[in-house]
Every structure is written in structure tokens, then in C-alpha cells.
Amino acid sequence: MPRIIACYKWVVDEAYIRTDSSPELDLEYADKKMSDYDRNAIEEAIQLYEKYGGSVAAITVGHPYDTKGVKDALSRGPEKAYFINDPSFENLEPAQTAAILADVITAKTEYDLIICGEGSSDLYAQQVGPRLAELLDIPCVTMVSKIDLAGEQLIAERKADDGIETVSLSLPALLTVLPDINSPRIPGLRDTLAASKKPVIEIVKDELSGNFAPCLQVLASFKANMERNGQKLSDEAADIAFLLDTLQSKGIIARGVK
């Protein structure tokens, strides 16, 4: 029966970033959320648990004030959570996150399967999953849209640019999952209440061993300006005719073709 670890990241909700023309990236008033595809990772862990038994734990690295994220993760079904936190673990780059996860997973957990989202909503570097697998020296398959277990064997469908591959590998292993692998359930009040009673294993920086220096240095972050001075139109025939006339006069479309 598989012991599953689902990795998640509690991220700034990008919907709070306005696409206006000021270049400053101001995240002070931005709310945080569960990274979109990590919902799929946790959901998949729970669905495998419902099918095959075993256990599911959630794990994250973050700032000590991200306790809301721990509750959110637990409300999605895992029986316990590992919360590795330190004020300096706020803006880690993927190599650091993977190294910290590897350190804790090796020292404190037993597992058969690790599931990550295909990429996080904030950085979308798509590195933590595959890097973590290498550091743990376990087989890895990314971009998975289907998982079946048969004893120690795992069968997965993986998306590549030239098609879908069906692959087999033995546990322990790490997979990153695509959003179409499942539809994450929305936690109800009861799930939220249950979450606050579940065990949270806090791990602080002193308990870690290893060098977590960044391999990627952020020199600057600024907002991408995409706003356009749009002209508002209605769905009335006159407005549509105006649009077509304009596009035609700009040489973009031709009329009366058929």
C-alpha cells in the first residue's frame, strides 16, 4: 500500500497583479493561494489512496506565516503535513526548494511515491519535481495525465511534444502531474474543520543539514505592461460594421470574399 507524499507551494495569487502601466511589482496587498496544479497533485494522491490504501502526507517549504496554506492543504485530504519553514524560505529558487525538500524527505519520511504539480503558478519553472527526483535518486516522470499502480510497479501516461507515452517504473518514484489528470474537489466546511485537528510536523532551519545556497540569482522583478487603450464596442450591428470597416481600412481583413 503506497505511502504517498504530495508536494505543494503556497503562492501569491497572480490575479492581484494589475496589468497596468506602472512597472513596479507590488505584492504587498496580494493574497496567497494554493498553487493551481498542486491542487491536482494533492487530489491525485488522495484518489490513489482511495483506490489502493496506504497514506498521504503533504509537504511544503515556506515562510512561518504560511500556516493558512498548511490548513488549506490538509483540508484537501492528506492525514498530516510537513511544514518546513523559516523567514528566509520566502523567495527560494527551484534548486533551493528541491534541496530542502530532499533533505527533509530523506531524514524524516518514508515514502513510495512523491507527487508534484507540473509547475507552480508563480514561477512556473517546472524544476522542483525533476530536481527532487535526481537528488533522491529515484525514477522520475513529468507531465503525467494518468496513474495506475500494480504492486511495486507504476504505469503512467506522460505527455510529450510528439505524443503520449505509456511508461512503467518501479516504486519509489516521483511524478509531476498535469491539470487534466483529475478535477480537484473543493474542500467543504467539514474538511476545513477536520484539517485543524490533523498533525502538522514543523521543521525549522536548524534541523536541516546541507547547503541551500541559490544557484539562480534574481537581479530584478518588474511588471510586464500589456494594457492597451481599448475601444469599447457593443454587440449591435452598427458597432460590428464599424469594427469591420476599421480592420479593412487597416488592410487586415478583406470583405465580400465569398
Binding site: 527551484p94 528541491a98 512556473y124 517546472q126 524544476q127 535526481e134 522520475c140 513529468t142 505527455k159 511534444d161
Partner: peptide, 23 residues
């Protein structure tokens, strides 16, 4: 940065303990 390319790059970077700028 094909899908395989991204996995390959992240795994090579992890083994070399070096930085990777994705996309």
C-alpha cells in the same frame, strides 16, 4: 524547452548542482 527538454534540463541541472533559467 520542449516538454522532454524541460525535464532533461532540470534533472541535469540538479546533478550538476547548477542554476537553470526556465523558459
Amino acid at each position: 524547452s520542449s516538454l522532454r527538454g524541460k525535464e532533461l534540463a532540470a534533472r541535469i541541472a540538479a546533478r550538476l548542482n547548477t542554476g537553470l533559467c526556465s523558459d
